[in-house]
């Protein structure tokens, strides 16, 4: 079981600019991988391609042996719902609903809100948000919001967790905290974590690192 990236190319715009120039690598399940590179190196683009949100111009992504861009819409959405979690740089919480409800959003699709209420509370408590279940996102600090967003990504115990600059908007203390949580997701229930970051310190905390330069893999460690 793995994420297999084979010969992925991506062109943008008109006239076309090749952002990714044929990338191939494989991430075994259970790993914590960081994608690093300068801005414009295509690392975020690669992450979205790997996570089924953006189709590549050429090449394929196989997750658990299945080409994600050949799944039917229904299967794809189910796959995202059950097996993937996303953490974005801008945490994107839904502003109208409370923290707890935000965390429970993915379970709403399957109608399991009730069953997941306790795990959601445990998760928030674990992230130090025990007394903020019923707060609205705007009543929280940036770091707290990001923790809620991670709790939301983790509520379904996804096999794959994709994070785009999760620490990008946070101070170093909150950044450390987020790294700790991501690492714990990796170690506690074995989620495969793929994280884009430009911070070399955080990148170094991953079990393996993929370096991108000008749309090509320049090194894997």
């Amino acid at each position: 079981m793995s994420i297999e990236v084979s010969n992925v190319k991506k062109l943008f715009g008109n006239p076309a600019v090749e952002v990714l120039k044929g990338i191939s690598f494989k991430i075994d399940n259970g790993k914590f991988v960081s994608l690093t590179g300068k801005s414009g190196s295509g690392k975020s683009t690669l992450l979205y391609i790997m996570s089924s949100l953006d189709a590549p111009t050429e090449g394929s992504i196989k997750i658990d042996g299945e080409d994600v861009y050949k799944l039917s819409q229904k299967d794809l959405h189910q796959f995202r719902n059950r097996k993937m979690g996303f953490v974005f740089q801008f945490h994107y919480l839904l502003p109208e609903i409370t923290c707890l409800e935000n965390v429970l959003m993915p379970t709403m699709k399957t109608g399991q809100m009730k069953e997941y209420e306790k795990p959601a509370k445990d998760l928030l408590a674990l992230f130090g948000l025990k007394d903020k279940f019923d707060r609205l996102p705007r009543q929280l600090s940036g770091g707290e919001q990001q923790r809620v967003a991670i709790a939301r990504a983790m509520i379904m115990r996804p096999k794959y967790l994709f994070a785009d600059e999760p620490t990008g908007n946070l101070d170093s203390a909150n950044g450390e905290l987020v790294m700790k949580i991501l690492k714990s997701a990796n170690s506690s229930f074995g989620a495969t974590v793929v994280m884009v970051t430009h911070d070399p310190d955080f990148a170094a905390q991953a079990t393996s690192q993929v370096f991108l330069l000008d749309g090509k893999v320049s090194g894997i460690r």
């Binding site: 229904k74 959405h77 059950r82 993937m84 959003m105 699709k109």
Partner: peptide, 16 residues
Amino acid sequence: RKDIAILRSMGFETSE
């Protein structure tokens, strides 16, 4: 738009 993106990433479908 952001909310829509996040809902989609959670696996909510077009119809939803």
